[in-house]
Each structure stands twice: as structure tokens, then as C-alpha cells.
Design a protein around this nucleic acid. Sequence first.
DNA 1: ACCTGAACACCGTTCAAGT
DNA 2: ACCTGAACACCGTTCAAGT
Lengths: 214, 214
Amino acid sequence: MSPRGREPLTRERVLGAALELADGGGFESLSMRKVAAAVGVEAMSLYNHVANKEDLLDGLVDIVFGELEAPEPGAADWKDALRRRAHSMRDVLNRHRWAVGLMESRVAPGPENLRFHNATMGCLREAGFGFREAVHASSVLDAYIYGFALQERSLPFDTPEEHGAVIEVKQAAIPDMTPFPYLVEVMTEMATAGYDYATEFAFGLELILAGLEP
Amino acid sequence: MSPRGREPLTRERVLGAALELADGGGFESLSMRKVAAAVGVEAMSLYNHVANKEDLLDGLVDIVFGELEAPEPGAADWKDALRRRAHSMRDVLNRHRWAVGLMESRVAPGPENLRFHNATMGCLREAGFGFREAVHASSVLDAYIYGFALQERSLPFDTPEEHGAVIEVKQAAIPDMTPFPYLVEVMTEMATAGYDYATEFAFGLELILAGLEP
DNA sequence: ACCTGAACACCGTTCAAGT
DNA sequence: ACCTGAACACCGTTCAAGT
């Protein structure tokens, strides 16, 4: 029995604690020692359930893939299915900002990763896209979605008002903006009207979806 | 005089050594101690020329922004200017793969960063885009470019042949692919025909450019 | 003014030792 | 079978001390 009669440590409990740490304190606060402390154990005990930190990250990333809404097989409206998929990805990547740079770079894709990408390719192929066309379509969609999430990630607040305040601080830190008139325009406009990420995301997504056809 | 009659240490020399380290050994090999060793000094000496590691990264990122080809003021063909800008960004981000996750998230934008974004907004505004339209356009373009670079970054090789070989290894590592028929199609096709990132990038870029109009 | 040694509070990971 | 203490080779950064 574990110390203090705790339930036994499992890979799932380790991943769960790690996910909570990453979502809460950010990726840099995700250390083996802190994960261990969160499950009430010494750091070295984690290696009984996880090969190393890379393996832990693989597990975390696949949990995130599991939260994504994959297109249903045989969806009636493929464009709507891809639209819902894209919005789901933005939502999930905003919940797990630390994951943005990791999702695409896993060398060992997990089962949820495979499921998700298989469903995406299936949606496109069934909609009548040729093989190369389907690759093109999913490539441009995912590049846009991940890239948008990357830009959105850096902003540590949610409402347009908060955003405006930060822009003002940023602007004040720059000595002389006169050589950059178009940036002045952007910053003053952002500071007053704010910046709506949801609208912005939808604009680019619809532009891309409009350009895709089997 | 510095030890062994070396030229004096400057911020530029520190940034130059750091850039070389990051480009060579990858971002994780970029430590204050290794940068210091590269310029023949102890780690603590760097703090005379750089506030901290964050400041060093700010400096590196702005060097990368300086390598980007910004649209010329008064460009005759705005679409071609943005096309050249996009390809330049892909080239530079491939030379400095470590920079992909950092470019968009700098809290303190450097002068080259300002120059580049001002030129981009200027190109769009002069082409007749309204303010919000210009923001939409640069947002979708940059999200796509950064996202594409993010996906391209993970592949540590350049030719389609090498890529095919890695796909085969990846495929062999997965136990049972029968639940994922569309992925099997992707992987066999990739393993035989390879994957041309330049063509793929151009497809998405042209799709987006075609959808943009003032 | 710039460089350094020693120190602090951290990392991931290994390994022999415990139960 | 699982957990641990001690250890190793690293981090970024501070600070008092050197020149």
C-alpha cells in the first residue's frame, strides 16, 4: 500500500496531475518534481509509470487530442463539419495553451491523434476530395488553426477591454512611433475598440473554407 | 583588456554567439552558460550586456525579424508583395526553427519587429484595404505562415526522400492501423511519393491571397 | 567598468538501496 | 513491484569580491 493509505499511483493519475499543472501554471511550471509533489510522491517514483518527460508530454498531448471534436463519418455537410472541427480546435487550444507548440511535433503520435487525423482525412475524401486535394485542404486548415492559436496564446487575458489596456502599456514603452504611422493606427484603434479574436478567427476560417472545393 | 587580448565583449557579440548556438544545436542547447563559453567568458559576465535570458531572446528574435523581407512602400502589385513577404518568412523561419514559437509572443517588440509590421500594414492600407480589412488580411496570412512553419519545424530533414523514410519508421511503430484506413493511405503515399513542403505552402498561400481583395 | 567564484534554488535522470 | 535518498550533470540568477 502507498504511504498514508492513498490509492495506488497510475499513469492516469500522473497524467491528470501534470495536465492540471500545465493548464494552471503554464508549461514552464511543469516539472517532474512538481508533478510528483502534486500526487504526493518523490520525483523518481514517476519513472515507474512514465518512461521520461518526453513520454509524459506524449501522454498529455494525446489527452488534448482526445478533447478535439473530430468530423463524424458520413457527415452530410463536409464544410460545416470542418468548421465545427476548427472551432473545437481553437477552444481546446485556448484551454491548453501550453499544447500549441507540441501537438504537431510529436514523434510518437498517440491513439487519439491517429483517430482525429483519420477522421479529418476521411471527411475530406468522402466529400469527394482527391488524395492530394485532401492533403492540401487539411494542411492549409491546420496551419491556419495552429498559427492562429499561437498568436492568441501570447495574450494572457480574455476580454477586449483588457487587451486594450495592454496595448496602451506596450505603446508607452516604445520611444518614438513616428516612423511607424501604420502601427500607430493599429495601436490606437486596438486600445479604443479592442480586438475580438473570435471574429478574427472566423474571418480567416471562412476565407479558407470558401476557397476549398473538391 | 579582456583575457588573452580578446576584443571586448559587446551585446552584439553575445547575440551573435547565441544565434549561432540556437541555429546549430537547437533551442534547448541555448543556455546562458553555453553562450558564455562560446564567447570565452563565464556565464555571469553576460549580465553586463544583457538584462537576463528573456532580454537575450528579445534580441535574437529582433535579429530574425531583421532578416524578413518587408513589402516596399508604394509597391505596384500588393498581392505579389505579400507573396514575396510570405515566402521570405518561410525561408527565414526554416533557417531559425527555434524562433517559430517566439516571434509572435514577444512582450517587448524590437525595432525590426515594428518596421516589419508597419510595412505590412502600410502595404495593405495603400492597396486600398480599410483598416479592419487590413487587420483581417494580415491576421489570416500570418496565422497561416506561422502555423505552416510550426508544422514544418518538426521535420529534421530537407528532402522528400528522407521524409518518406521517416514515415515508414513511424508507421512501423504503430501496432494496428486497420481502424485508420485514411491514415494508411496518407502514410503509404507519403512513403513512396514524399511530401513537398514548398508546393504545399504555395497552395495554401495562393488560396488565401485569392480570397483577399480590398 | 567589466569579469569572476561561490552560492542558491532549481532542473531531468540514474542507481543502489529499501519495503 | 513500487518507492526513496543520494548523487550527477546540468539550469538561471544574485552578490560580494576582485582587477
